[in-house]
């Protein structure tokens, strides 16, 4: 087995999701090569080289990869795909964008968002918003896979010393150009890797009221998330959305506030270790998955929670 893993990074450091994908790759076994493609990304490549179990790091440092445009990045991965048996990426928005393009260019199927490795050709993934688990076998010569972070522990990030090898860029596909981005700014931990997540739903009533949740999050060092309804209503940006079609999280503690618990939301958080629900409707479905449920008006309970946590 030879696994090529497309690392997710911000040029300076690896994104946490890369380390979860490394664990999946190591369960598949064999040689593990990390591809760090970006611009001025040598320090990310050095971080990749320090991950134990990594046999080699390929560094593609070129302006073409500055913004991970799918058309150019897929071209690069295909050019490097040679004799690898597995091409893997974390199931981040970038991995989901690029890998199916790679798979189609290689004329092979992709297995999306695996939760578990059964054997090098057999994987488990969820379907129907997490309401069923499918065990899927691939007979393809190259298995193209994206890895759901919550299925795998993060690999250690230090102790390894793999060699870094520079590789040539694969040329510009000439199809796309980066224009700009609007990234949500906050000092909080990343939603998908935070140990604690506090999420708000339609019950929050406004974006301003999310300050109540931020106060709790500050006390707990938590990330802030949201339901689709809260995002659609414009209370918070799109990248806060937790669920089937947003981010999948599995923190040690998930606190759902003013969220009813639709299956699409549960799909994104029901693997959390401990779930707390605060909702004024005692019949809200969220209570069926909550370890601790509090039937209360959030506008009373949340400020009280902040106070209690200061004690």
């Amino acid at each position: 087995m030879r696994v090529l893993l497309l690392a997710e990074h911000d040029n300076a450091a690896l994104k946490p999701a890369t380390l979860n994908a490394v664990t999946a790759a190591r369960e598949i076994g064999g040689e593990l090569v990390l591809l760090v493609a970006g611009q001025d990304c040598r320090s990310a490549a050095e971080a990749a080289a320090a991950v134990p179990g990594v046999t080699k790091v390929l560094l593609a440092d070129d302006a073409l990869y500055a913004h991970r445009l799918a058309e150019n990045l897929a071209k690069l991965v295909v050019q490097l795909s040679g004799d690898y048996t597995h091409l893997i990426a974390p199931a981040t928005s970038s991995g989901k964008n690029v890998m199916p393009r790679v798979a189609a260019l290689l004329d092979v199927a992709q297995i999306s968002e695996i939760n578990a490795v059964v054997s090098p050709d057999t994987f488990i993934r969820t379907i129907y918003a997490g309401n069923a688990l499918a065990t899927v076998q691939s007979g393809e010569r190259i298995k193209v896979i994206t890895v759901r972070m919550t299925g795998f522990d993060a690999a250690p990030s230090t102790g390894g010393s793999a060699a870094i090898e520079a590789v040539n860029a694969a040329g510009d596909a000439g199809l796309s150009r980066f224009v700009g981005q609007e990234l949500s700014k906050n000092e909080r931990p990343e939603l998908t890797s935070a140990r604690i997540v506090v999420s708000g739903g339609r019950g929050m009533q406004s974006g301003d009221n999310f300050k109540l949740l931020e106060a709790v999050a500050d006390k707990l060092g938590a990330a802030v998330g949201a339901s689709r309804a809260a995002v659609d209503a414009g209370f918070v940006p799109n990248d806060y959305q937790v669920g089937q079609t947003g981010k999948v999280v599995a923190p040690d503690l998930y606190i759902a506030v003013g969220i009813s618990g639709a299956i699409q939301h549960l799909a994104g958080m029901k693997d959390s270790k401990v779930i707390v629900a605060i909702n004024k409707d005692e019949d809200a479905p969220i209570f069926q998955v909550a370890d601790y449920g509090l039937v209360a008006d959030l506008f009373q309970a949340v400020p009280e929670l902040t106070k209690e946590l200061s004690k």
Partner: peptide
Amino acid sequence: REVDGGLETVTLK
């Protein structure tokens, strides 16, 4: 595009 960190705009042919 909706991406992990927020929004990204690209020009496509």
